[in-house]
Computed example of a mutant assay.
Amino acid sequence: MKKLALSLFCLASMSFAVEYDAVRGEMLSLSCANCHGTNGKSTTTIPVIAGLDKNYMYQKLLDYKAGKSVGDTQMMQKHTKGFTDEELEQLSYYFSKVK
């Protein structure tokens, strides 16, 4: 049982490789504001990204970057290619903490 708990803890802690930097996350998020609104709180038909689960958002951003996501994603594909994977992690952390 202890081995299982330790294994799960190790897997959970490895899901994000970088330490969250709140200032950097907020600065990176400014590039999202034009479409998704201030702090990801869109008031238009563009999706609200504030408060999304960090793991979900990070995977979604990686999918956009790799061209794997479907739908009207041309803008997101272009936008995410301008970020490193580490920067996408910071964005995911930042938006997951916005209430």
Rank of each mutant, 00 (worst) to 15 (best):
Met1His: 08
Met1Phe: 14
Lys2Trp: 12
Lys2Ile: 11
Lys3Val: 03
Lys3Glu: 12
Lys3Pro: 01
Leu4Tyr: 04
Leu6Gly: 06
Cys10Gln: 10
Leu11Ser: 10
Leu11Lys: 05
Ala12Met: 15
Phe16Cys: 06
Phe16Gly: 00
Ala17His: 06
Tyr20Asp: 06
Tyr20Ile: 01
Ala22Cys: 06
Val23Ser: 09
Arg24Phe: 09
Gly25Cys: 05
Gly25Met: 00
Glu26Arg: 09
Met27Tyr: 07
Leu28Thr: 03
Leu28Met: 05
Ser29Met: 04
Leu30Gly: 12
Asn34Val: 12
Cys35Pro: 02
Cys35Leu: 09
Gly37Phe: 05
Gly37Ser: 08
Thr38Glu: 15
Thr38Tyr: 12
Gly40Met: 08
Lys41Leu: 15
Ser42Arg: 14
Thr43Gly: 09
Thr44Leu: 14
Thr44Val: 13
Thr45Gly: 12
Thr45Met: 12
Ile46Phe: 09
Val48Leu: 15
Gly51Phe: 01
Leu52Arg: 03
Lys54Trp: 06
Lys54Thr: 01
Tyr56Met: 09
Met57Ala: 11
Tyr58Ala: 01
Tyr58Thr: 00
Tyr58Leu: 13
Tyr58Phe: 15
Lys60Leu: 12
Leu62Cys: 07
Asp63Asn: 14
Asp63Val: 03
Asp63His: 02
Tyr64Asn: 03
Lys65Phe: 06
Lys65Thr: 04
Lys65Tyr: 04
Lys65Ser: 05
Gly67Pro: 09
Lys68Ser: 09
Ser69Glu: 15
Val70Ser: 12
Val70Gly: 10
Val70Gln: 14
Val70Trp: 13
Gly71Lys: 14
Gly71Cys: 15
Asp72Cys: 11
Thr73Asn: 13
Thr73Trp: 00
Thr73Arg: 10
Gln74Cys: 14
Gln77Ala: 12
Lys78Phe: 03
His79Cys: 06
Thr80Phe: 07
Thr80Val: 11
Lys81His: 11
Gly82Lys: 10
Thr84Asn: 09
Leu88Ser: 04
Leu91Arg: 01
Ser92Trp: 00
Ser92Phe: 01
Tyr93Lys: 02
Tyr93Leu: 08
Tyr94Asp: 05
Tyr94Cys: 02
Ser96Trp: 00
Ser96Gln: 04
Lys97Asn: 12
Lys97Ala: 10
Val98Ser: 01
Val98Asn: 02
